[in-house]
Amino acid sequence: MAMKNRISLLVFAVMAMFALSVQAASKEWLHIHVDDKNKEEKVRVNIPLSLMETMLPMIEDEAIKDGNIELNDRNVKISELKKMWKSFKDEGDAEFLSVEKKGENVRVFTSGNFLMVQSYKTTEGNVNIKIPLAAVDAMLSGSGNELNLAAGVKALKDSGVRELITVEADNSKVLVWIDDRNIAK
């Protein structure tokens, strides 16, 4: 009987260790690196996506009031954003915005399952943003005038996309990516 108990305990311990290691391995982290040589400033952010999911309801309460969100100092209505996104999606793979002028080249387009923003400005350098459509869908899935940021993060996590944003200018560099390590590469 004692032997049986010991074996059960051992099996339980092995299972617990396995469960813990699986949980640890599945934790994904969002990393943000900003290097600004002009200001001699470096910013490093390492946040687990699970923590972001927990924190987002708080941010939703504080930052998104009355269905409005501030984008580039402009108040944008979420309902309008949803309508716009729906018409974008109905188009399939398409280029929504293309600006070409001296020293500036900006493209916003969908390609496969991604929304892409590619920009080059002589003053700002290269900007590449790659967002899974599923993440945008999830973010705009909130009822009425609400954004569902938590669902957006979850969709981002499930999408398997790693490099989200890269900005490379002469004197500054911004990287936003996801991986399963709690320290930045």
Partner: peptide, 28 residues
Amino acid sequence: GPHRKVVQSLANELENMPDTDFVEVQGK
């Protein structure tokens, strides 16, 4: 009051996390 559950689950999440530098800002 409104953030009670969030703070509690934040504490739980944080506690189970490995030691990490969450935010580091290095200025001049």
